[in-house]
Design a protein around this nucleic acid. Structure first.
Lengths: 237, 237
DNA sequence: GTTGCTAATTTGTGATCACATTTTCAAATG
DNA sequence: CATTTGAAAATGTGATCACAAATTAGCAAC
């Protein structure tokens, strides 16, 4: 196997230069890598080397080492016994598990955030949903992933920092590389969501309806992959 | 303020030597620090320095740096804008938030684990609960914290690795330093739990009862601190 | 006694180096 | 042709150093 690139343009990261905005080099590397993972720039199974990333980002291995430790701790990357780090491969069991956790976590977060969502916040959410649809219409997968994520995170992240947000982010980091692959395989035509339903539930202050919408959104999004899809995906990869 | 040691013996870690059991130095440091956080060896507010930990554990700053990054990523420690790391202080809002997240997460995990718990597993849980009670009886706070944690984690961690376990562990890492402080203040006499109720629910395969027991256990444990307790704790610290 | 400033110390960061482990690849053996 | 063996290259790890930023200590001024 070794380098099964799975027909996706690889490692196209670091478009912006280090802004020197009081940010440490390690944090910059971390943000770059995280965004790359979330937008599916890293193919599952790909091994991530210290010096490779360092050279790609134009730094010494030191900041990369620390950034990788953070990402491994957040389950975005996977550390093997060989002391080597790679992008985790997805398995049916893992996907099912991740899907259940995500549904539970985000339904909880949405229900908790609902009372704190004001009109301005709600309007922002409508805008984001429109941008999501526009990205789908344009076939812009990377843009879709970013908008989609922005919608969900904006919905949950209200008021001061909640303890659930980092947990939700960790889950997203785990399924995102696979999601990109799946969308690329299935095509962007079949993407559906329950965003409108969720926003209506928020407007009506209907906690149960909101919970149902979020759970359905997750189930029909992540959990919709059938066994056949799996076989096709593995054959393609 | 600066060094408000809060009347708890400080930094009593690293009792065992590095076993050289194929484990990296960084991982060893990480495990040492994590155990110290979970058993409340680190007082909230205490600043953690690179060279300090390194000297205390007899290594160079390099492995410590990476271990700290991991712990910060898991929310066990807190990184400030000053580039300094410390044990997070607890606030009423944070505790309330953490308590709600924990109840939701562990009820979910317990409900999912229940069908997979066999008789041997159940017996192990009964043993652990007995050890918890014994530790309380003996007034062994540190032993209690370890057994208490073992009970909960053994209850949820069944079968192959689930995606919730790391999330639950992150939550525990966040409230553990405070829990130790609170127990030390309140005294070990008033410690109660719903472990027996939970195990009976497992035996009866009653998911709803199990969920109720876990939620009650969390609420009456973490969430029981009243405003008055807070004031007394702050006055003592 | 409090405030404000400067020097000394402490601390985190990033780079570099040496070393051990692992992987890779090619030649040799069956 | 498949398998094994060995050298060579690549990789992670830990230590050390130089440097910048932050904290602390000491001292003067009000």
């Amino acid at each position: 196997m070794a380098h099964s690139q799975a027909s996706i343009d690889d490692t196209q990261i670091a478009p912006v230069e280090l802004g020197d905005a009081g940010i440490t080099r390690q944090e910059w590397v971390y943000l770059q890598l995280k965004e790359a993972v979330l937008t599916g720039q890293f193919v599952p199974g790909r091994s991530v080397t210290l010096r490779g990333i360092a050279q790609m980002l134009g730094t010494s291995p030191t900041p990369v080492r620390e950034a990788l430790r953070r990402l491994v701790a957040e389950r975005a990357l996977e550390a093997h016994g060989n002391r080597r780090v790679s992008v985790p491969r997805m398995t049916p069991a893992k996907l099912s598990d991740l899907c259940a956790v995500r549904a539970n976590l985000e339904a909880f977060a949405a229900e908790r955030a609902m009372p704190l969502i004001d009109d301005a916040h709600l309007e922002r959410l409508w805008e984001l949903d429109a941008e999501v649809d526009a990205a789908i219409e344009a076939g812009d997968i990377r843009g879709y992933l970013q908008r989609h994520r922005a919608f969900h995170f904006t919905l949950y992240d209200v008021g001061d920092a909640s303890a659930v947000m980092p947990l939700i982010e960790s889950v997203w980091l785990q399924f995102s590389p696979f999601l990109r692959l799946a969308i690329h395989h299935i095509g962007s035509d079949y993407i559906v969501d329950r965003h409108v339903e969720a926003l209506h539930a928020v407007s009506a202050r209907d906690a149960q309806a909101l919970r149902f919408a979020i759970e359905a959104d997750v189930r029909e999004g992540l959990g919709s992959l059938t066994e056949q899809d799996w076989r096709e995906l593995e054959a393609a990869g």
